[in-house]
Every structure is written in C-alpha cells, then in structure tokens.
Design a protein around this nucleic acid. Structure first.
Length: 858
RNA sequence: GGGCGAAUAGCUCAGUUGGUUAGAGCGCCUGCCUUACAAGCAGGAGGUCGCAGGUUCAAGUCCUGCUUCGCCCA
C-alpha cells in the first residue's frame, strides 16, 4: 500500500486522470451502440474570452448528469463546441486592434477576419483547457464550431428553406440601431435602463396664426423630423382641431394635426409629436396615416443634412442646441423631471437609436405555434417550472426577428444580387450566373446573420444535418438542456422552434435553468465586468472536486448564487475528509484473503447474505476469505448506504443537486466517518473474523460511496477507486448495478439511532462534568451531589438544566393543550395524534428526570 | 404599468405535498494534537422564520394586504 499524503493534494491527481480518461476514450460514445442514448449539447461558450464561474456551474451540472447516466449504463453523448459570437467577438477584436493603433476599416474585411480567426484559436484553446480543468466529460471528437463548414452549410440551407416558405423577407423598417457598433440588432439585444431624464414641453404654433399646441417629448432633437402632431381621437379638443396645420419650429415646415388610437391622452399634454424616422411607435402611426418618414439622424448618431443648421452635430449636442434655439424663440414652455427607460445595446451599452434601414427579417408567428404547443403538452418541460411561463409569454407575443447584421464576423447571408437585372438570388451555394438574365456580375449581400441564427440549430447542426446521419438518428432529440435563464429568448425558444421546423421533433425534453452566479456585491459574474475569478485559478488552489462540490451544494434550483472563493473551503475540507477516510481504510492491516480475485464461492453462505459482503462482491467482483463475521454496526452502515443511495438517485433525477450533495456529505462525513469508522475501530482491533468483517464493510461502503460521489467529484473518487479496486477499470466508465435493496434494515437503523442518542447524552454529561476524554466511564451516571462537588461547576450546570427544564416544560404544556383539545383529537389524522401522545409521554418523562437531577444538585 | 423571485442564527443559505423541540456550513465559546483527518474530534451559545391580518385542530410552509431588495417584460 502506497504511503498517502496526510493532506489531499489534487493538482497532480487531477492532471493524471484527465489524461487517462482522454486516452481510454471513455467519453466518446458509439452511435451504433444498443444502450439507451442520453444526450446533452454543451451551450457553446463564446470565444470572446475565457470562462467564468457561471460557466463552471453549468458545466458541472451537465457533467454530473452525464457521468451519472454513464455509470447507469446509458450511451452518453455530451457534445462539445463553441460559438463564434458575431457581434461580441467582432467588438473585442476591434478593441484589441485599436489598442495597437489599427482601425478595423483600414484593415479591410479579409484581414480583419483573419484577426478574428487568430483570436478564436487562442480563446478556443483556453476554453478547452478550462473545461478540462473542471473535469468536463465532453466528447471532443465531435467538437463543432459555429462557423465550421458543416454548420455553415446547415445555416444556408435553413435560410433558403425559410425564404422559400415565405418566412424570410427583406424590408425597410425601423429597427434597433447601435450607432457605436454600426449595426441593426434584435429586440432581445436591447436592455432597458431606468434613467433620470427630462420631459420637454414645446409649443408648436398653428399655421393660421391662432394659438398653439404644446407637445411633451424626451427627445427634442428629433423634432426636426416631425411629420405631424397626433392626439387621441377621443380627445375633447379633437373636433375643433380637425384639419388644422402647425408650423414646425426650427424646421420651416408645416405639419398636420392627426388622430390616432396609439396616443396616450393622459401622457404630457395629450399631444404627441410624430417622428416616424426615429421612433418605433411613430413609425407605425406614420404608416397608418401615410406620412413619409423624415430621417434627421444618421447611422453614426449624427444629425444629417435634413437637420438644417444642426447638421453634423452629435445627437446629444444637437439636443442642447435645439433646446437653446427653442428657448430663444420662446417656445420651450416647461421642463419636468422624468423617469423613463432608455434602450441600450446589451453588448456595448450605447443608447439605441431607432433607425430606418433595409434588413432581413424572419416571420416568427408560424414557427412559434408548434413550440407553444410542445411546451403546453409538456413535451418540453422547464425546471424550475416558472421559466416555462416566461418562455410561453414570450412565444405568445413573439415579433419578427431581424436577422441581418452589418458586421463582418459571421455567416454571410446567402443572397446574391445580379448586377445586370437586379434579380435577388437566394441559394445555398454561390450561383455561377443569374438564373433570370444569365449575367455573371453577381454580388453577395454584404451583411452577416445574427449569431443566434446559427446557434438555434445547435441540437442538430453539429450532428451533420441536413444529411441523415447515424448520430442524428441516435442522439437526437437530446435529453436535457442546461443553461441560464437569460438566454431563454435568444436561444432556448429558438432552438425549440428550429428543431420542430427542421427535425420535426423537440430538441430536448427538459430545460434545466441554473441560477446566475453573482459576486458578493450581487453583480452577475461576466467577462465584460471582469469580476469573475478564472475557474482554473480556483481549481489550482482548491481542486476541481472541491469547486464542483461547492457549486452543487450552493445551488438550489432557481436561486442565484452569491459566490465568493472562500466558500470553496467546504468542498476542500470535504475532499480532505474523504481522502483521510480512504487513507485510514486502505491503511488497515487486515488480511482480506482474496480481496479482488478468487471465487465468490469461497464465502460462507451466511456471510454472503449479509449486506456488506453482497455489496463487496457487487463492487469488487469477489469477496474476502472464508472466515468473516459482521457486526451490527456493519449492517447498519450498509443499510444507511442503501438508504442514502436511494435518496441521492431521487435528488439527481429531480435536479436537486444541492440536496444530492448534502446527502453525500452527511452520509460520508457524519454517518460513515464520525460513527461507522469510529465504531469499527473496536472490531478492527479485535482482528480475526470480526476484524475482517469490519474491514470488508469499510472498503465496500467506501467503494460504493466513491461510485455515488463520482459524478460530483470525479477526480478524488477515481483516485481512491484505483487504489481500492485496481482491477476494475476506470470509475468514469464503470457501470454500477446499484445497492442491493436487501441491505436495508429499518429496525436496526432505529435501534442505532437510539444508541447514538444515548452516546450523545453521555458525551454531553461528560463534557459538562469535565471528565477527561481519556478516562473510561461507566454508562450509569451517578448524580449524588457530594461526589460531584469540586469536580463540577454545579451552579453553571444547574443554570443549564434549568433552561432545559423550562423549555421542555413549555413544550410539554403545548402538547398537553393540544391533546386536551377535542377538536384536535377529532380532526387530526390518527397517526398525528398518536405521535403527539408518544411525544407527550417522552417529554414528561424527560421533564421528571431533569427535575430529579436538579433536586439532587440541591 | 404588468409578471416573477427573495426576506429564516452574526454571515451564506436549506427547510419538496401544512404535523416531533426550525437545520447546515462558516464565524463564535469550551475541552481535546483520542496512532485517518487541527482543513480534525467532542460539547455548547445563538432564531418572536420581513410586517399586519386571515384560513385551519395545527402555519416558516396556504390565502390577502403591505414594506424592502433583485430580476424580466412593456
């Protein structure tokens, strides 16, 4: 037996097993295998940077499920991959280049893309390293990148099919425009930020000279693009104002007064300036009233020629100058403080500019319908359930998806325009010539697709779709999707729609939504904030197992986690505890006979009936030598093991990873180490048949614990397993039949629980009577005061017992009152009443005992 | 404005369909280097479960209202 370090040192051990697993290809499933498949696709991390603690949480959950299922005998595929993350990556590469003094536009599209690919390689390798460090049992042989040719082909295929169906269209429309990134973005990419702003009241004089209308606006600079002033048709002033024209100040134009239901009569003065070029609501009003938009702000957020003397100004500067000009003309009536939400680009924080431009859109309503049905029928279930409602409410109010982006990094839109006849050609592969005029001057659309337009195919595009592959047949639909609630709209909902549309089946049956990992200030841990420790550093300091265990223990479903690295100590201590238990068990010098090889027949039948021997056989293949005898404590711990194993299974199957880790922790630390191993030391000292019984049990229970714990703490369990059962192969690939049900012994467990209570009581007395730990005491405690005087602080003891007595008397009264209440006896279930009676008897007994001791103490 | 989540020990959190004296880890106090583990062992202190009502034989748990914090949607 090798000498084991006193303190568990994970670094070398983790490195070793990572290599062994890779070498043995434990995590690469065979699509042709007959076992039931279990599939998870890794939410492809963005290659913008390295992973955060939040990723570590999601990865651990997935790994736990995969390892659990693998040991249960499933054919497990956990698919690895990464996302090109269009706008996010383009942004970081742009910034990195700028730091070297290189502008993106000066570099040109080709060169810039080369830079992006270089970036991708670097962070790809980093992420692979990180995932490996936390023990992810991913299948890297099937690894996919969202810009891989196969995926790209799938993306184009999808675009063409949707276009053919009439679901993809191109239109000039008002979109969310990021002036800083210079691209359109989808509604989902806009974050609304509550802002202290102003509401400006501006007077628009009537063109015929009589009076004025005052409009309230938060964006005075857009007035230069006003085309009307709108009021609610029910407004009292409506009749009088019909057909009236207004002079638009600063612009030298006249605009009509119009009436539209969309105006909120209670807001401001009830008069709304209509600016279709720069507001989504106004755009729709403009359409309804056939008013052409006037655009006054350009794509960079500067005023254009339409803005007259304000042309060239930044939109913020323009606001100041417009207000000053209005003030000068005496038209600025009032300024109120005003709290409102302003949309910002979620990637760069720039205030969004509603902007009219020609973009590609995807009609979502028809795609959403089957996705809504699937969730309502329960074919796709969310955990925790409430996320299902969030998904449904979004799906039911779904809007068209703007899928084109004015970026370089991404899937180029598969559309070509003919220079000869202006024909638009939508095709999977680049056409050689125009099918209409035969011209060869074809130019591909300059834009790329939204990143999510490739990730929404993620459950099937990496498996080779649109080809009918063996992988697709075996592993689709996938089993569980593990991800954060923040990308339900971006990703989860769209995957459900894509899979139903193109595969004709759901992408996954369960969506497990993890909590969000926050720092101690409550901020989400993110790359951009830079407030997440690198998982690799935590692993380096505490070990992957400790980190994983802590994450699982800290994450009740649906709750965010306030993470602080000091919390990992729980896991670190636990790993050390396990290590030392193993050190103790493996160090016991007991002759186990044919510990691993040899015939099980060598066992006496009686011994084989005992749970621990049966267990030993089931794990190690055969059992110890002929002479073996088990004690009650052996049967007890085996019974506890069986019970805990059942609880664990229950918890994992219901995604209660916090409960699962607690179960393992309590069992191993308290039941196995604190009670069982301590009890078994006496039997071990006895030696002989009894000693062997204890040793076999200690090993068997440790062995099964390693199996049960492996999905949570893969490295340390693998290491201990390799010492415990060196000929049984790697634990990661071990199929475990489960703990035999006959190991359970309820009566024995109850007896031992009682025994434990007595032992605790004696320890308590011992401590309060200051009896040295080394001294053996008789279990019959004599409380005659004369003998105790001098040894015991009698006053302190009396005080303590007095408190106990008070508490128990109070409780006793409560129970008594309950039992005397006829309504309780009549209405409460029989067993509850019975239980209360027993409690009453027990407590009044205890009350008498304490009172007697107090009396004895004087 | 609508929806959702949270409020339990000094700190971070459990407490699944209402039913023993509300638990854990950390921190704190006391005693122990008991030959697996001081990252440990044994014992202990500490909570009117955010507030106010209600339902019930019985409420941390269910209902209503309110307060504070956080998130999502408009």
């Amino acid at each position: 037996m090798p000498e084991l370090e006193k303190v568990y040192n994970p670094v070398e051990i983790e490195k070793k097993w990572t290599a062994v697993w890779r070498e043995r290809k434990v995590f690469t499933p065979d699509a042709a295998a007959v076992e039931t498949p279990f599939t998870i696709v890794l939410p492809p991390p963005n290659i913008t940077g390295s992973l955060t603690v939040g990723h570590a949480l999601g990865t651990t959950v997935q790994d736990l499920l995969c390892r659990w299922k693998r040991m249960k005998g499933f054919n497990v595929l956990w698919l690895a991959g990464m996302d090109h993350a269009g706008i996010a990556t383009q942004k970081v590469v742009e910034r990195a280049l700028l730091e070297q003094g290189i502008a993106k536009d000066a570099l040109g599209r080709e060169k810039f893309l080369e830079e992006c690919w270089r970036w991708k390689e670097k962070y790809h390798d980093r992420i692979v390293e990180q995932l490996g460090a936390i023990g992810a049992s991913l299948d890297w042989t099937r690894e996919t990148f969202t810009l891989d040719p196969g995926v790209s082909r799938a993306v184009r295929e999808v675009f063409v099919r949707l276009h053919r169906k009439g679901l993809i269209y191109r239109d000039r429309y008002i979109v969310n425009w990021c002036p800083s990134c210079g691209t359109a973005i989808s509604d989902e990419e806009v974050d609304f930020v509550e802002t202290h702003g102003k509401l400006y009241y501006i007077a628009y004089p009537f063109a015929d000279g009589g009076g004025e209308l005052v409009v309230g606006t938060t964006r005075p600079e857009t007035m230069l693009g006003d085309v009307a002033v709108a009021m609610h048709p029910g407004d009292k002033r409506a009749a009088a104002l019909k057909g009236k024209m207004l002079d638009l100040p600063l612009a030298g134009r006249t605009i009509p007064v119009i009436f539209d239901e969309a105006v909120d009569p209670a807001f401001g003065t009830g008069c709304l300036k209509v600016t279709p070029g720069h507001d989504a609501t106004d755009f729709l009003i403009g359409l309804r009233h056939k008013l052409d938009p006037i655009v006054v702000i350009d794509r960079e957020g500067k005023m254009n020629a339409e803005a007259g003397c304000f042309a060239g100004l930044d939109r913020r500067e323009a606001r100041k100058q417009v207000l000053a000009a209005l003030e000068g003309q005496g038209l600025l009536r009032k300024i109120d403080d005003y709290e409102h939400s302003i949309g910002h680009h979620d990637r760069c924080g720039t205030a969004i500019e509603p902007y009219i431009s020609r973009q590609w859109f995807l009609r979502m309503k028809t795609l959403a319908a089957p996705g809504i049905e699937a969730a309502k029928r329960g074919e796709v279930a969310f955990t925790p359930e409430r996320w299902g409602n969030i998904y449904l409410s979004w799906m039911e109010n779904i809007r068209d998806w703007c899928i084109s982006r004015q970026l370089w990094w991404g899937h180029r839109i598969p559309v070509w325009y003919c220079g000869g006849c202006e024909e638009t050609i939508v095709a999977v592969d680049e056409p050689a010539s125009c099918p209409k005029c035969g011209g060869t001057k074809l130019a591909q659309d300059e834009d790329v697709l939204d990143t999510w337009f490739s990730s929404w195919l993620w459950t099937f595009s990496p498996m080779g779709w649109p080809e009918k592959t063996r992988d697709l047949e075996t592993f689709h639909p996938t089993s569980v999707l593990v991800t954060g609630g923040d990308i339900i709209f971006f990703w989860v909902a769209r995957m459900i729609m894509a899979s139903l549309e193109f595969m004709g089946e759901i992408p996954f049956s369960t969506v497990y939504i993890t909590g969000i990992v926050r720092d101690t200030k409550g901020r989400k841990m993110s790359k951009s904030l830079g407030n997440s420790p690198d998982p690799i550093d935590i692993v380096g300091r505490a070990g992957a197992d400790a980190f994983r265990f802590t994450l699982m223990m800290l994450s009740p479903p649906g709750q965010d986690i306030m993470f602080d690295e000091s919390k990992v100590d729980v896991g670190k201590h636990f790993a050390n505890k396990i290590w030392n238990a193993a050190r103790f068990v493996l160090g016991q010098e007991v002759d186990l006979g044919c510990a691993e090889a040899g015939a099980p027949d060598a066992f006496p039948a009686a011994a084989r009936d005992a749970g621990s021997a049966a267990l030993y056989e089931s794990i190690f293949g055969s059992a110890a030598g002929p002479e073996i005898e088990f004690g009650w404590e052996d049967r007890w711990i085996v019974s506890r093991l069986a019970r805990r194993a059942g609880e664990l299974e229950q918890h994992i199957e219901t995604y209660r990873f916090d409960e699962a880790s607690r179960t393992l922790y309590d069992f191993l630390w308290h039941e196995y180490c604190d009670w069982y191993l301590e009890l078994s030391k006496a039997s071990a000292r006895e030696g002989g048949a009894r000693g062997r019984g204890a040793a076999v049990t200690a090993r068997a229970v440790l062995g099964s614990s390693m199996i049960l714990l492996h999905p949570t703490m893969p490295f340390i369990t693998e290491e201990i397993w390799s010492m415990l059962a060196p000929r049984r192969g790697v634990l990661a690939g071990f199929h475990f039949p489960g703990i035999p049900g006959r190991c359970l012994d309820e009566a024995l467990e109850a007896d031992v629980a009682f025994f434990m209570e007595i032992v605790s009581a004696i320890r308590n007395l011992r401590q309060s009577f200051n009896i040295p730990p080394g001294r053996l005491v008789s279990a019959v405690i004599n409380c005659e005061k004369e003998r105790l005087r001098g040894v015991v602080d009698i006053e302190a003891e009396k005080k303590r017992l007095g408190r106990d007595l008070e508490k128990i008397a109070r409780e006793c009264e409560k129970v008594e009152g309950r039992l005397k209440d006829a309504r309780f006896v009549e209405k409460a279930p029989r067993d509850v009443v019975e239980q209360e009676r027993n409690r009453y008897n027990e407590m009044s007994d205890k009350k008498r005992r304490i009172a007697r001791i107090l009396e004895d103490l004087g």
